[in-house]
Amino acid sequence: MEFGEMFNVAIQKQNKIHPHKFTLWVGIGSIIMMFAGLTSAYIVKRNQANWVTFDLPVAFWYSTAAILLSSLTVYLATKAFKERAMARYRQLMLATLLLGIVFIVLQIIGFSQLWKSGITLQANVSYSFLYVIVGLHGAHVVGGIIALVLMSLKAFSIKTRTYSFVPVDLISTYWHFVDLLWIYLLLFLLMIR
């Protein structure tokens, strides 16, 4: 495997896209296809009988603010990392992690509000779609949070010091992606209902 690593070092120096980042981009394309499948199924279903429109809970709006803010913090974190301002980097990574958790908590609060108002998973297909689509996005955010936890542990570890930008770049790209995906889903759910 060390061959691969040497390869990567050489490629980085040339400012060419790192293979792992490229892999992430293709993976993002693949995740987009999954949500394209779900949202197009939603559109097909919406044009059939029995569709019920509903309003999104207020908590979803607060969660949107949280995830937008976290995109900003992760951007600043990468900037700090590039400037080797490691203390600032660590703080910003923690902030991103916290905002990510806040996002998930607010989403859960939103769903419990929905559930209490009678918009439950089984009540109507339109509600089921909301739960599955938003829930799957949430699962992708949780994946990002796990990666952020690992990154933060690494950043606070005294034993090993890493100055490779690749993992930081990967997590920030992914994090911006789940943010954009949420904005897309939010607009989608607001406009097509």
């Binding site: 296809m33 999954m34 394209a36 199924a41």
Partner: peptide, 12 residues
């Protein structure tokens, strides 16, 4: 990469 995720949606 482009078609399997759609099957995954269906399976879910």
């Amino acid at each position: 990469v482009l078609s399997f995720p759609v099957l995954l949606s269906g399976a879910i």
